[in-house]
């Protein structure tokens, strides 16, 4: 089986989309998503009915934004996250997102071609929060190799 890496991260917004304080985030979104879509190793990301991004989906709470994607490997996702223009968004996240008070990101392996559901992603995040990093749900800091 070829394994791909699925990743969920969530964030609690400081304000709604109309809030001027959020304009820096929303204004840069298309550029960052295009960067992800073209990044080596990118496979898929969840989008809403509009088809551009997932910012209108709120399965975990009205003020919680989600980001769910699949990558060919942990390394390609790590490179995009920390070694691309995306790093500057991460650096500035406190301008738009408040601390969640809990683990906010989880990685897990899926068979190539699988598209994780929001429910599945939520279960993996719960698992990581409950049991810490395991082969079924892990972090960048404590990764597990592909099966």
């Amino acid at each position: 089986m070829t394994a791909h890496l699925a990743q969920l991260n969530i964030g609690r917004m400081l304000g709604p989309k109309e809030d001027p304080g959020m304009s820096g985030f929303y204004g840069d979104l298309d550029r960052i998503n295009a960067l992800a879509d073209g990044w080596p190793g990118f496979v898929w990301r969840l989008v809403d009915a509009e088809g551009a991004d997932a910012t209108s989906l709120r399965p975990f709470g009205d003020d919680i934004m989600i980001n769910l994607s699949v990558w060919e490997s942990l390394e390609t996702l790590r490179d995009f996250t920390f070694r691309s223009g995306h790093l500057d968004v991460l650096r500035r996240r406190r301008e738009w997102f408040m601390p969640l008070g809990d683990i906010y990101a989880v990685n897990w392996w899926v068979p190539a071609g699988h598209r994780p559901t929001v429910a599945e992603a939520g279960e993996r995040l719960d698992l990581l929060r409950r049991e810490g990093p395991t082969a079924s749900a892990f972090t960048f800091r404590d990764p597990f190799p592909a099966p």
Binding site: T81, F82, L87, L90, R91, R92, R93, R141
Partner: peptide, 12 residues
């Protein structure tokens, strides 16, 4: 490597 966002932010 363990905390890229905060360390790169502090570095900048």
């Amino acid at each position: 490597r363990t905390h890229p966002a905060v360390v790169c932010g502090a570095n900048l």
